[in-house]
Write a protein that binds this DNA or RNA. Sequence first.
DNA 1: CCACGGTGGTAGA
DNA 2: TCTACCACCGTGG
Length: 179
Amino acid sequence: MHQYTTNMPTWRVPIPTSKGEFIATFSNEGLTSVSFPMGEELSPTAVSPRIAAWAKLTKAALDAIIAGKEPAQLPPFMFEGATEFQKAVWAQLTAIPLGRTRSYGEIAETLGKPGAARAVGAACGANPIPVLIPCHRVLASNRKLGGFSGGLDWKIDLLKAEGIRDFRSSAASDMLALA
DNA sequence: CCACGGTGGTAGA
DNA sequence: TCTACCACCGTGG
């Protein structure tokens, strides 16, 4: 699912933000993954100038989206071992404008595969670059919150930062909501 | 094959 | 409203 089929060299770079330290992983081809803050800090290692530049872009983009603003520029994405369906879904995610949402079913329909809503959800969960590839902008039908691999509290935070407030939390996730 | 999801839609209480 | 149930489809075992 989230395992690479090759062992291309990669570099893990800490990305400090106001919400904690993300970790970005790069190959020579571009950004391969972003992970949410997990507590422990990663000591910075030396990287090539090109990767340092991508890391800088990644930080600026994360800072922007966390603040609910449009990122000026994104680093190049590199999807290793992803299926065509997943890449198609992720492409649709990047097409959702900031401050707007789509449903899993709508994405499926756009892909010409109505009925694949559930598979779309699985592909969202497999998104290796959350936040920058805005899987948080995908809600269930009836504007219910749906799920989020990084934790629903993150999804709620990101949505609210973008000014999106007309979503319904299920009874179970009500306590996650914050003013 | 089979089982499992970040679904969706329907039916009933 | 919320629960129960089922069809749906891509992935991985």
